[in-house]
């Protein structure tokens, strides 16, 4: 599959909640094998955008497609195959409160790789959590962990089954600096493996370091989306305080992905 072919595409998506429109005709294409970072102020629609892209929120209008297939037409098997291919990190961890840490992280393997057996699954969970610096017991419940530890467990749950597309909602929130570095190492590894990573974040550090594609969402509209350099220097981005911080950091070492598929760069809603 060509590197720049779209993994997930949103076309004219409108979504609302409680009578309020959160996304207003958003159009964006997240390329396969690259890390796309979408930034925006609180309440701009970042999390809803991510949930719509992941098929967790059904849009009021518009279409969402996964590798060219309209997700609205997914049957039960298509949906299950899509879930086997994707992982989702929630902003507030969203761990299952009545399930142990082992049970939480093991669930995607039990659902999608049940042939592995419980022993291998437990070992895989132990190894992954160890790499993320989690050193608490696996048999305790999420309520016994700090918010940062819960976030690490949530990240582990999203990647344990080695999905090819990972959705991340502010993955470094609530984390201390050491934990952020561990998450960045994991992101490095996922990026090297050419996984498609779609992140919505407030962290300019994360965008500066990982964004192959950078987007800005404002009041439910994607006002800019393209290569990192193109978005940072765009006129619309000048209005974004997040991007102002990135501009202030100056040029970064140009990632190969900035060139690859650069012709695919686009602005949202255009």
């Amino acid at each position: 599959m060509p590197e720049s072919s779209p993994a997930i595409e949103l076309s004219g998506v409108t979504a609302s909640s409680g009578g309020f429109e959160i996304l207003s005709g958003t159009t964006v294409s997240f390329p396969e094998g690259l890390c796309s970072v979408v930034m925006g102020a609180a309440g701009s629609g970042k999390s809803t955008l991510l949930k719509v892209a992941a098929g967790l929120v059904v849009p009021d209008s518009g279409s969402v497609s996964f590798r060219g297939a309209d997700m609205a037409r997914f049957g039960r098997r298509d949906e299950f195959a899509f879930r086997a291919t994707t992982g989702f990190v929630f902003q507030d961890a969203a761990l299952w409160a009545d399930t142990t840490i082992l049970g939480n992280v093991a669930m995607p393997l039990r659902v999608h790789r049940h042939h592995l057996g419980e022993k291998a699954i437990a070992e895989a969970v132990r190894q992954l959590l160890g790499r993320l610096g989690y050193d608490e017991s696996l048999t305790i419940r999420p309520a016994e962990l700090s918010a940062g530890e819960q976030k690490l467990v949530s990240i582990a749950r999203a990647v344990i089954h080695e999905p090819s597309i990972i959705f991340m909602d502010d993955p470094t929130s609530n984390l201390d600096e050491d934990a952020v570095e561990k998450v960045f190492s994991l992101l490095d590894e996922l990026r090297n493996k050419k996984r498609t990573i779609i992140v919505v974040a407030n962290s300019s550090d994360l965008a500066f370091r990982f964004a192959d594609r950078l987007g800005v969402i404002k009041a439910g509209k994607m006002v800019a989306f393209g290569t990192y350099d193109a978005t940072v220097s765009s006129a619309e981005a000048a209005l974004s305080t997040s991007l102002a911080r990135l501009r202030a950091r100056g040029n970064r070492a140009r990632a190969p992905a900035d060139d690859a598929g650069a012709e695919n760069s686009q602005r949202g809603d255009v």
Binding site: L56, A84, T86, F88, D92, A94, V111, R157
Partner: peptide, 17 residues
């Protein structure tokens, strides 16, 4: 209801349940 508020239901959907 608590699971809905804490996004645990969405988490089940996200893993394919």
């Amino acid at each position: 209801g608590t699971m809905v508020v804490n996004h645990e239901i969405e988490a089940y959907m996200a893993v394919g349940l």
